[in-house]
């Protein structure tokens, strides 16, 4: 009886340990960092003079504040984000890079790489990490070839991940806006017109879908 009690307590202890280790970051040196549940925050800040964007993850370990650059991560699972690393053999990238997984379905993964202010790099890859579709976008171009590209990207996501209800619901959010914001501050009015509404007529906001690469479970 005492043995059963002991085993039960041991099982309970192990379960708690496993549960509490559900949010983690493995850095490029291979160190596994167990982070406090729900403590992570992430921000992407652009540099004024270059197209570079720095993505930083803020987190706490037993209450102590820490940060890590996205490019220093090998693997991670925190909040709504999943990060893995892969050596991309592309025209413009030929090294190991961390990527976010947005969705997984039928052996395909929708992934997004570290972006710049000019480009966002997103792909559909198969279970062998082979690139099936290049969904990369140019951030500030909405006309001509880029407009056709944006329409193609939208349709490819729907083709491969059409059964992922939450992902498609999120993709649809980039098509409409039902709120009206009136800016009173003169400072904000310099940047935004009062009653400015995004209509997304030319998929102009599609790059924002990849801007926040959160993982959404497919049912």
């Amino acid at each position: 009886m005492t043995k059963i009690k002991f085993l039960f307590i041991l099982f309970l202890f192990c379960s708690i340990q496993l549960y509490s280790q559900s949010e983690y970051i493995i850095d490029i040196k291979g160190n596994k960092i167990i982070i406090d549940e729900g403590s992570s925050q992430m921000t992407s800040v652009g540099s004024e003079k270059t197209p570079k964007v720095t993505t930083t993850i803020f987190y706490t370990i037993k209450g102590k504040k820490e940060t890590i650059d996205l490019l220093d991560i090998k693997e991670a699972s925190y909040g709504s984000y999943r990060i893995n690393t892969f050596k991309f053999d592309l025209e413009y990238v030929d090294k190991e890079l961390p990527y976010f997984t947005l969705a997984e379905h039928n052996g395909f993964r929708l992934i997004s790489l570290h972006k710049t202010k000019i480009n966002s790099f997103s792909f559909i890859i198969d279970s062998n990490n082979k690139i099936i579709e290049d969904l990369s976008l140019k951030s500030y171009k909405y006309k001509g070839d880029e407009l056709e590209n944006r329409a193609r990207v939208d349709s490819k996501i729907r083709e491969y991940f059409g059964n992922c209800e939450e992902l498609i619901r999120r993709l649809d959010r980039y098509k409409y806006n039902n709120s009206v914001m009136t800016f009173k501050s003169k400072f904000v009015q310099k940047m935004r017109k009062p009653n400015e509404v995004s209509k997304n007529e030319n998929y102009e906001n599609l790059n924002l879908f990849f801007n926040n690469p959160l993982f959404q479970q497919c049912q």
């Binding site: 709120s179 009206v180 914001m181 009173k184 501050s185």
Partner: peptide
């Protein structure tokens, strides 16, 4: 608020 007015469905 003093900065903006949001009217949302």
């Amino acid at each position: 608020c003093d900065q903006f007015h949001l009217d949302a469905q």
